[in-house]
Computed example of a mutant assay.
Amino acid sequence: MSSDTKARIQAVARELFVEQGVRNTSLRQISDRLGITKPALYYHFASRDDLVRSIVQPMIDDHDRFVTTRAPGDPRELLEDYFELIWRHRQVLVMVIRELATLGQLELAEHMFEWRRRLVVLLLGPDLTREQHIRATVALGGIADCAVEYADLPIEEVKPTAVQAAADALGL
């Protein structure tokens, strides 16, 4: 029951954070929407920062796992799998992008740059020209941007075009 309440709190908080930003969302708003007391919310999360961290951490863990367990292979397949990873966490990305201070608080920017460096090597190998680096930045950034910009559309509508555009940017 406790983990169910925790998951409900995270879901409502994520929704409110996406709608109105982290700073503009109070723990009172979250507890009111859930119909629980603020002390009940504090039982599960000591602060708003703890709650934000708990929402963002699964995305960090999934990205870390993705870049550390993948072996170089078919670049198109990697782009498709990366798109699906980003798509799964699109609400969190919207939340983070909407409030860039979250990047600093969670040291997320450093994670994101490291993920991108590893993905570039997986896609194109370790010895790249500056042009290849730039193309990879456009490809991977474009995939992430599509997941955020078109988050409300069905994945079937977004993924094929986003992956093809990324493949084109890479010259595949």
Rank of each mutant, 00 (worst) to 15 (best):
Ile97Pro: 00
Ile86Phe: 02
Ala139Thr: 01
Leu124Ser: 14
Arg98Val: 04
Pro126Tyr: 00
Gly141Tyr: 02
Glu80Val: 14
Ala101Asp: 15
Glu114Met: 12
Thr129Met: 07
Tyr82Val: 03
Val96Ala: 12
Leu103Lys: 01
Leu123Val: 09
His111Phe: 11
Trp87Ala: 06
Ala136Arg: 02
Gln91Tyr: 07
Phe113Glu: 11
Glu107Pro: 00
Phe113Thr: 13
Glu114Phe: 09
Gln105Pro: 00
Ala109Trp: 11
Leu100Gly: 08
Glu114Arg: 15
Arg135Asp: 12
Ile86Cys: 12
Arg117Gly: 05
Thr102Lys: 00
Thr129Cys: 05
Ala139Leu: 05
Leu119Ser: 04
Val121Lys: 10
Ile134Trp: 12
Leu119Phe: 04
Thr137Leu: 08
Leu119Thr: 04
Leu100Arg: 15
Glu99Lys: 01
Leu103Arg: 06
Leu79Cys: 03
Leu123Trp: 08
Val96Gln: 04
Val138Pro: 03
Met112Glu: 14
Leu108Ser: 02
Glu99Leu: 00
Leu123Lys: 08
Leu93Ile: 01
Leu108Trp: 07
Arg118Ser: 14
Val121Cys: 04
Val138Arg: 08
Arg116Phe: 08
Tyr82Leu: 11
Gly125Asn: 11
Asp127Lys: 12
Arg116Leu: 11
Pro126Leu: 00
Glu84Val: 05
Leu128Pro: 04
His89Cys: 08
Phe113Pro: 00
Val121Glu: 14
Asp81Val: 03
Ile86Ser: 11
Val120Asp: 06
Leu103Glu: 06
Leu103Asn: 09
Gly104Cys: 10
Ala101Leu: 05
Arg118Ala: 12
Leu122Lys: 09
Phe83Lys: 02
Met95Asp: 02
Arg118Asn: 11
Trp87Arg: 08
Ala109Ser: 12
Val92Arg: 01
Arg118Thr: 04
Thr137Ser: 12
Ile97Gln: 10
Val121Arg: 15
Trp87Asn: 06
Arg116Thr: 13
Met112Ser: 11
Val138Met: 13
Leu85Ala: 09
Met112Val: 08
Val120Pro: 01
Leu124Tyr: 00
Met95Gln: 03
Ala136His: 05
Glu110Gln: 13
Leu108Phe: 14
Met112Gly: 02
Ile97Gly: 09
Phe113Ala: 10
Pro126Gln: 07
Gln132Asn: 12
Glu80Tyr: 05
Trp115Tyr: 15
Met112Ala: 13
Ala139Met: 05
Glu131His: 12
Arg90Gly: 06
Glu84Lys: 13
Arg90Cys: 05
Val120Phe: 03
Phe83Asp: 02
His133Asp: 11
Ile97Trp: 07
Gly125Trp: 10
Arg88Asn: 14
Met112Phe: 12
Arg135Tyr: 01
Glu110His: 07
Ala101Trp: 03
Leu100Trp: 06
His133Val: 03
Arg98Tyr: 04
His133Gln: 13
Arg135Gly: 01
Glu114Ile: 04
Arg98Ala: 14
His133Asn: 09
Leu79Asn: 03
Arg135Ala: 15
Arg118Tyr: 02
Thr102Gln: 14
Glu84Gly: 10
Thr102Phe: 02
Leu123Gln: 06
Met95Trp: 03
Leu78Tyr: 03
Ala136Cys: 07
Leu78Glu: 06
Met95Lys: 04
Leu103Ala: 09
Leu100Lys: 11
Arg98Lys: 15
Leu123Asn: 06
Phe83Pro: 03
